[in-house]
């Protein structure tokens, strides 16, 4: 039986790991390759690196980070942030990433999803979606540019469009829950799970082992991603996995 995946996420800026709360208030959290090794030892099933560098130098540094991670670790990892063209996808995958995550660029030009999937296969293409609940419309709205720009897309429409175009996986971040540590956004995940047939990674809101249990048993997410609770050692990947295993969740 397929195990549920626990995925630490590392936001990388100019070659260093940082983590914000609700996309602002950024603090330094360490060296990406060192942190990646620690998470591998703790039993992380996969890693996600999101490059939030503003500068061209920062982007180049990110390729070095990708190469170092691929050289030293034998687990899969995804790289996202600033990937705008098929050339960017090629460069990232050829330097050792297993998947790329597309966010704003995919909303701006959905053909990018198709181009990447046709060239490398759907399994390499993760579409990351940041969404926020909108009360007047009682729906979730997709945002781009690190959560700064609302789009015309409703969450479920965009998720379906992304999969139709070749996304092999959806990484869904709830902006309402991000950094709050009050649990994953179960209604949002449920809404996406019910309309797509590819794996869904839950993101935003992890604060305790119970939250992972809920997301795997109440909405059957395939994987769950977290950053700050692991970076600041509030718990470890190993602790979360032991807790889940004891409760009968399929865990590696």
């Amino acid at each position: 039986m397929l195990s549920k995946r626990i995925i630490p996420c590392l936001d990388v800026k100019e070659g260093r790991v940082v983590k914000g709360i609700q996309f602002v208030d950024i603090r330094d959290a360490g060296d990406p390759v060192e942190l990646a090794k620690v998470y591998d030892e703790q039993g992380a099933d996969e890693l996600v690196f999101l490059d939030i560098s503003a500068s061209h130098e920062g982007k180049k540094t990110m390729i070095d980070v990708v190469r170092s991670v691929a050289s030293e670790l034998a687990i899969p990892f995804t790289v996202g942030g600033g990937i705008r063209t098929l050339e960017d996808i090629k460069e990232t995958l050829r330097n050792g990433a297993d998947k790329v995550s597309l966010n704003s660029s995919a909303v701006q030009r959905p053909e990018l999803i198709t181009e990447g999937a046709d060239y490398f296969g759907s399994q390499c293409i993760v579409v990351a979606i940041d969404a926020r609940y909108d009360e007047p419309s009682d729906n979730w709205v997709v945002y781009t540019h690190g959560g700064r720009t609302p789009t015309e897309w409703s969450l479920t429409d965009w998720a379906q469009e992304a999969v139709k175009r070749g996304a092999g996986e959806i990484l869904l971040t709830s902006m309402n829950k991000d950094g709050e540590k009050t649990g994953f956004d179960l209604p949002m995940l449920e809404a996406v799970q019910s309309v797509v047939s590819v794996p869904v990674i839950a993101s935003g809101g992890a604060g305790s082992s119970e939250h992972f249990y809920d997301v795997f048993t109440k909405v059957d997410a395939d994987a769950a991603l977290a950053a700050s609770i692991f970076h600041y050692k509030e718990t470890s990947v190993g602790n979360v996995k032991r807790y889940l295993k004891d409760k009968g969740v399929p865990i590696r």
Partner: peptide, 12 residues
């Protein structure tokens, strides 16, 4: 019953 394709993740 429908199941997900691709088969993606850690399996025993």
């Amino acid at each position: 019953r429908a199941y997900k394709v691709p088969h993606m993740g850690w399996n025993q």
